[in-house]
Design a protein around this nucleic acid. Sequence first.
DNA 1: AGTAGACCTGTTAC
DNA 2: GGTAACAGGTCTA
Length: 278
Amino acid sequence: MISLTLPEHELDLEATLFSGQLFRWQRQDDGWLTGYVGTQRLCLRQTESTLELAETDEATVRHFLRLDELALGEQARRWSASDPLFASAWKRQPGLRLLRQDPHECFFSFLCASVAPIARISKMLQAVCEEASGEPLGPFPSLEALLTLRESQLRARGLGFRAERVVAAARKLAEKPDGWLDSLRGKPLAEIESELTPFPGIGRKIADCIALFSLDADAAVPVDTHIWRIAKTHYAPELRDASLTPANYERAASAFQRKFGPYAGWAQQTLFYQQAVK
DNA sequence: AGTAGACCTGTTAC
DNA sequence: GGTAACAGGTCTA
């Protein structure tokens, strides 16, 4: 087993893993948290500023948690100094990081996430895994396995209108060259959005979730119902009486990006957490 | 360019 | 105990 010591407020593992970025991590009874990145199983536990790893190597964990890419504590101090709303959200929940997820799982996770509470999203994804691979809690099924799924089968498992989208999106993804989704990592956000929104069921909000949570697009701000409300009341008051049209989506996201800069997506997650999860 | 409704379903609030 | 509103939206007319 490996232990890492982290600076204070650099990471709150529990809050990070259950903040609505990903939906299939499990709490074990002995305090360990387990999940998958691609086919690799991770086993993590945090006590104060110590992070313990089991069944996995340090490099994988650092890559997944993005520990060497952003000194979040320092960044949060600067954001707090310039924005009272962020300051209060961070004070209540410091250490909320963004993760580098497997784009394949992230793609299908947020495809299922339309107007569903986090608990239901978890259930739907567990059902997808069980139907595709027989293992509800195992690694996320490969595209090949997902291609065997039928809409009727997924509807029977509670996916609702998302069932058709999952089946159709998997088929469309299969037409792309191998590794296509991974190849979007690091591309400009606008390019990622224009590559993903042609998929059935993926509009701008879900494209931004996939970009932010798995493709390193740190400035992406997925404007959902909560972030829209925060934007209207705090960062773009001129939108107070507006509705969330595509043009206003852009204005809201831009307001966050002006306020928080190239890591606006990270700030967004802490604000989202206060509104939607906590 | 912006608005209105439909779309699945489990949970929570009266 | 039934009913309505809501949930990390997208698509079509």
